[in-house]
Write a protein that binds this DNA or RNA. Structure first.
Lengths: 304, 304
DNA sequence: CCTTTTTACTTAATCGTTTTCGTGATCTCA
DNA sequence: TGAGATCACGAAAACGATTAAGTAAAAAGG
């Protein structure tokens, strides 16, 4: 590998000069600089990230915590999209992304230790069990941490605007004529709270009365539980005309339940999933609400 | 950060001794070693990956090339699953995964340069444009490279067994009674070749005659084109009873076309997607063939 | 013309490890 | 007991970069 020393030799200057020239320091003569740049290019020089990180304490590397309780990990559609956004944004700023695991081979390490080992400049907690002590340890450390769709005390958080998203969704289906709307929401998280708030607010403002029995707690990404709840809702004599699901994935469980009940979508009943992952735009009928939640487009962020 | 020096001081030995003790070198006394280990643990010592990599030229870091021509990037279901497998396997061996981009901030760099910069020990090309000169440059470099579902000259490749997978799939639907099978395959790649071979072989062995007009080229992951072809197939007076799609995603386009034609699945016609991503097991009817292609479970690999 | 300032470098230390080589001390065995 | 082997550890260089401090030469100022 070609190093600063090689360039220095070829140019007849010291490595310090080369380093400064390459980093745009002001105390280098113009012609010396251009000569160094040319030679560096000729030799195909690439800095050594390790050496640089060792000296400067900055790795230009961001750790990503991405554990999915369900098996399938990265296949989680919504977060995969988010991760891709993070990646391209990081790239624009000269950062790379490294996955943070627990454990390095044999050694079991905490997430925080792993971060220190790799010397990441910060961590994005994209998807994780926020009650895990190791996660809270990480959050409470001095490392810059950003969380997705979860708020920790005074740390940066990128949030989907669930309140506005749900608000828009309600107005959308209301505009289609729906008045009998059922809401299956996920577990009690800040995401759910936002959506519930948006739901109630929009219904109230639109003058729509929703009986409590139509607001049910399901499980995120669980077609089975959401399907079961759907069956119960369909058994109701004054059946809702539209059912909201916590996400597009669980929505599929609902669609199956509807199908099994001999009902057709959208003629007999409408089903709406939240998220708007690419897939959902293809499923017939197209799930509305796709535009209401789009990765990091319009985050509400609070700064540490 | 606590370093070797801190431990050395506390233990009254040199940093060399500490390093050797921690790395299990044989020339350290037992009691010295255990004392060092204890103190290291007490102080919460973590090695500095940069310093180590700088000295040893091994980063225990693997680069991942994961560019998706379609927008949506990581959301690509099948490869996301593959990526997750790679990750957990890498973790077991003490390796981390870092995404390889082109460009670091302003600087445009090739993939290879980026790899050298980060000092990765190897690269996994999970999904990329294999005709891209930058990709071939990477493949032809001295870096260890492994590709997924694509064979490069003499490099390691992890392949789905498309031939056997398709063979099994044909036998599966044939056992269900299907004789009029249509195959929509993807673009001409090694994956497609394997599947076509398997398809023809199985049909021949089962004594099933398939007219050429039922073997059509579609586009991977493109519900639109596959939907259009499906429409054409349905227009055929002697309609096939079963249609194969290149993947579960494009299958959805086909299902829509079938639905639009007023036909029911699976009563009137069967649709089969390849891949077996989690989602497809939920869609009604469940897509068969899920087990025929599973990430890295049964790879056929050729070594460099 | 001599002093001060500026310019354009160089020297050398440093980041945290690993690793080769050296060196006393202890042990082995005839 | 004394020579050689073994053991346990230390000294120091090296990896490739950054950067504070120093310096010679050129420019500026009076």
């Amino acid at each position: 590998m070609v190093s600063l020393k090689d360039i220095a030799q070829r140019c007849g200057v010291s490595t310090a000069t080369v380093s400064k020239a390459l980093n745009g320091q002001p105390d280098i003569g113009e012609e010396t600089r251009s000569r160094i740049l040319r030679i560096a290019d000729e030799l195909g020089y690439m800095a050594n990230a390790s050496a640089r990180a060792l000296k400067t304490k900055r790795s230009y590397n961001i750790g990503v915590l991405f554990v999915d309780p369900m098996h399938g990990g990265l296949a989680h559609e919504f977060f995969s999209t988010v991760l891709d956004s993070i990646r391209s944004e990081a790239e624009r700023h000269g950062y790379d992304l490294t996955f943070i695991n627990r454990g390095l081979g044999q050694r079991e390490t905490s997430y925080l230790q792993h971060c220190r080992y790799r010397g990441v400049d910060g961590v994005v907690i994209a998807s994780a069990d926020f009650t895990d002590p190791m996660v809270t340890e990480l959050v409470q450390s001095d490392l810059p941490v950003a969380t997705i769709d979860h708020v920790f005390n005074d740390r940066i958080a990128v949030l989907s605007d669930n309140l506005m998203g749900m608000d828009a969704l309600v107005r959308f289906v209301a505009a289609k004529g729906h008045r009998k709307i059922a809401l299956i929401h996920g577990e009690s998280t800040s995401v759910t709270v936002g959506r519930l708030t948006g739901f109630h607010r929009a219904c109230e403002e639109l003058g729509i009365q929703i009986p409590d029995k139509w607001i049910r707690q399901g499980v995120f990404h669980d077609p089975k539980s959401c399907g079961a709840i759907t069956r119960e809702l369909l058994a109701d004599p004054e059946r809702p005309t539209c059912i909201f699901f916590p996400d597009d994935y669980s929505c599929i469980g609902g669609l199956n339940a509807i199908h099994d009940a001999g009902l057709r979508v959208p003629e007999d009943i409408s089903a709406v999933g939240y998220d708007g992952i690419p897939l959902s735009r293809i499923v017939s009928p197209v799930l509305p609400g796709s535009s209401s939640r789009s990765s990091i487009r319009a985050p509400r962020s609070s700064t540490a």
